[in-house]
Nucleic acid binder design. Structure first.
Lengths: 154, 154
DNA sequence: TACATATAAGACAAAAAGATCCTAAACTCT
DNA sequence: AGAGTTTAGGATCTTTTTGTCTTATATGTA
């Protein structure tokens, strides 16, 4: 159980982690005018194939990537849209906005007028996170990957 | 399912949210030399009684609060220790340290030398969060509650 | 048109998180 | 000592998250 074993609650859900990794990889390939099929994608980012399929379906529904069926098909992003896709769009599509909008203690009624005890302490962290997610484009992350400055595996 | 319904992945697990709220309340009562029993505690922070019991057991094991059995028993914190208890101790006891130590994309091999694409973007956020959790004492949160500046319910 | 290959979509399964229940152990008070 | 109250701890149940499987649908190519 969560409480008994040393849990590791992460910033994003596993699905969201896969979604970000997948989008970055698809973006890198898109910048090279390449479509990426599911199998190769899952291989490259080290994620379960069938689960990744579900996640990609969501990204397609949220217009973050588009898909092409049939042979030579796969996932791709229009080259000119890559820089318009921000981390916040992916996080929002998969995890919702609670991580950078909600109360740190999960209180419904928490706001600036009736703050929870950690409200002010978290306000800055949350705003910084929001700012970062909303200004970081997949373009910059994909190009770092392309030139071998960053890595997606393991 | 997570992917289908609009999920809300939060900063901390539910258990951790309850743990923080509970510790703040017990601390406030401890500053008034009062012991807090489980039922009253759960009532005050709006959490399920039995689940809260499990969480309190963990906090006792991690020496964050101590417990007294029998009538007039409950949970308490030594007055002189209240200011020594930091948010990080609670988060660590319940959620582990991944939120402010691990890679934003969940990659095992991610570090400054072989960074994931979002590594640098997250470094600052993570460090700020860590700093805040490690420097925020339960004392200051409990006193804000005591004077009615902050609220724990709903 | 037929065939091969790729994604879409739904059902299903396993694991973890969230929550409950019951009995044991500790303690206070009479 | 006995009765009643409170936390400890184990077993159990439910919901959510993570992951798999099977069938349908779309598409490129011979």
């Amino acid at each position: 159980m969560a409480i008994f074993t040393a849990k590791q609650h992460t910033m994003f859900s596993k699905a969201c982690e896969y979604a970000i990794r997948a989008t970055i990889y698809v973006a890198m390939r898109s910048l090279q005018d390449q479509c990426t099929n599911l199998k190769a994608l899952a291989e490259e980012i080290g994620s379960p194939v069938a689960f990744t399929a579900k996640i990609m379906q969501q990204l397609v529904k949220h217009n973050i990537v588009y898909s092409v069926m049939g042979p030579t098909g796969g996932f791709q992003i229009e080259k000119r849209r890559v820089h318009k896709i921000k981390l916040s769009m992916i996080v929002n599509a998969i995890d919702g906005d609670a991580i950078y909008q909600g109360c740190g203690l999960g209180l419904e009624a928490c706001n600036a007028l009736e703050p929870c005890p950690v409200h002010d302490k978290f306000a800055k962290i949350r705003d910084d996170l929001k700012q970062m997610l909303e200004t970081t484009s997949i373009y910059e992350l994909a190009t770092g990957l392309e030139v071998g400055m960053t890595y997606l595996k393991r």
